[in-house]
């Protein structure tokens, strides 16, 4: 099975966001970037499927700036066979143009499975996998936390509101990966050395016109300063009174 893993370089989750002068993007000064946490589950699952079948290939791809080489190299060191950087200097936020560009590239390579993280923790869109599947005509299951492959058919489990869904899914497919699916491995020294000899392709990407234009990126209004109603168990009546006053009780 030829597997494509879509990954993204994102600001670390503990970043304090500052808005850039254009009022439409973040100020990257002092921001550390890392591999999107959910994409680690996607990469790990790809490596496990290849190990299970003892055949096929794992290609990692990202759309982003040249600095993404670090995250792609890390993926190669963990065991991916090939890395592709579709390079752009734009902030990749627009779901439609991203999905269109990725779909166009995927159509040029052998691929029967696309694995993604459930969402990138910068734009928090949670739309790329199903969007991509629509454009490729592939089957799709999203937010999967258990996945088994038998005779080219996947059985996936995912959490829905108050229940768990078991989904069967034919190939070719796009599967988006959630926490709980696996425990991602990290690169070891041998992997890091091996990665240096693996193919790394960089090509510019044309993202096309945006389906959604950014009007503004703003910091949310600060929550009004809260109030400590008291200390210890004696404060319970004061809390109840406060909640009744604003009619939530």
């Amino acid at each position: 099975m030829d597997i494509v893993v879509c990954i993204k370089r994102v600001p670390a989750t503990d970043t304090a966001i500052k808005i850039a002068a254009d009022g439409k993007s973040i100020d990257p000064t002092g921001v550390t970037f890392e591999l999107n946490a959910y994409d680690e589950f996607a990469l790990e699952q790809a490596l496990r499927i290849k190990e299970q079948l003892n055949a096929g290939s794992v290609t990692v791809v990202t759309i982003g700036p040249k600095e993404c080489k670090k995250q792609l190299d890390d993926a190669l060191a963990r065991g991916a066979d090939k890395a592709v950087l579709l390079s752009t200097t734009e902030w990749v936020y627009d779901g439609a143009s991203t999905a269109a560009a990725l779909a166009a590239w995927i159509k040029t390579v052998p691929c029967n499975l696309v694995l993604c993280g459930r969402q990138a923790v910068d734009s928090d869109n949670n739309q790329l996998p199903a969007n991509l599947a629509g454009r490729l005509g592939f089957a799709c299951v999203t937010e999967v936390s258990k996945l088994a492959l038998d005779n080219g058919v996947f059985t996936a489990e995912r959490d829905i509101e108050g229940a768990r869904e078991v989904v069967t899914c034919k190939t070719p497919a796009v599967v988006s990966c959630h926490k709980g699916l696996n425990e991602p491995r990290y690169a070891n020294l041998k992997g890091i050395m091996a990665a240096k000899k693996k193919p790394f392709v960089e090509q510019p990407v044309q993202l096309g016109s945006k389906a959604m234009e950014i009007v503004a990126l703003t910091l949310p209004p600060a929550r009004a300063a809260g109030k400590i109603v008291g200390t210890g168990v004696d404060a319970v009546p004061a809390l109840i009174a406060a909640l009744r006053e604003i009619k939530v009780l």
Binding site: D94, G95, A96, S97, A99, D124, N125, N126, Q127, L128, P129, A130, N131, L132, A133, G134, R135, C140, V141, T142, E143, R158, D159, I160, E161, E165, K210, A211, M212
Partner: peptide, 22 residues
């Protein structure tokens, strides 16, 4: 929701348009 996140991006792709989520 779990269903909305799974369904609407595909709908947007088939309509060849954009999508904004959450």
């Amino acid at each position: 929701t779990a269903m909305g996140k799974d369904l609407l991006p595909r709908v947007s792709a088939l309509l060849d348009t954009g999508i904004v989520t959450d």
